[in-house]
Design a protein around this nucleic acid. Sequence first.
DNA 1: AAGCATTAAGCTCGCATTCG
DNA 2: CGAATGCGAGCTTAATGCTT
Length: 269
Amino acid sequence: MGSVPFSDTELFDGFYGGFGGGGGCGHGYDEYGLGQLGASTSPVLADGGTEEADGAAASTELLEAPKRKGDRRSEKAAMALKSHSEAERRRRERINAHLATLRTMVPCTDKMDKAALLAEVITHVKKLKTSAARIRSHCAVPADADDVAVELVSPDAASPPPSHGGGLLVKATLSCDDGADVFADVRSALRPLRLRVVGSEVTTLGGRVRLTFLISPPPGDDAGLAESVRQALQSVLDKANSALEFAPRASLLNKRRRVSTFESSSSSS
DNA sequence: AAGCATTAAGCTCGCATTCG
DNA sequence: CGAATGCGAGCTTAATGCTT
């Protein structure tokens, strides 16, 4: 339509005043005294006059000083604008790169626009969550959230080994991050209780671990033992969580965090 | 084919927030 | 406190589809 295509705007690097894009916001670029910046040999000063006119009118040091100061200010503002503009471009590229990644992860999204893509991703994630929940209900996979569960179960439900006598069993389950110390911590926590463990099971998935113990309690003290085991396992969780509090600050910040541009390969200059 | 409306995408600006 | 960054809004342009 007779205007400069976006791809050609690089020609006007630093020349904001000459390009019409985004010019309708009610604020002209001259608001900054930047008119024709970069392309003009007689830059407009903040007060509206040109350097040539002012220079002819007064050549004393006293008058020159503030002028150079204004020049520097507009140069500085122009640099800030350019920098901000480039940062915005990088931001858009980052967003688009991640959207492209999402496109590769969800089938049949090639022709979708961004809004439809995001809607499809939401649907897809919901489906995956439902599937995960279904699988979890059938298999003993670790829970997403840290959890300690202790319950009394009948030997039938728990399918204990033949060595078990026949009374109620204590079934204790711990789900947490699969850290290097988990097993040692659990062992340390349970050892003082002098338990008779008749069965155990370990499941790990995606950096999470789920430990299940079947314990044969002493006669008449089911509830007491269950509570002791629960406290012991809870102490393991508490220890792990307190260790997290001393982890690098970045992992705990809920403020908006700055992320360096493009964790992927593309580096813009 | 021309004209028009709609939509998607990119650009810039100004303000708010965060960081050093 | 100034610089850097994030974000929403308003704008333009290009592409697309529909009607005449």
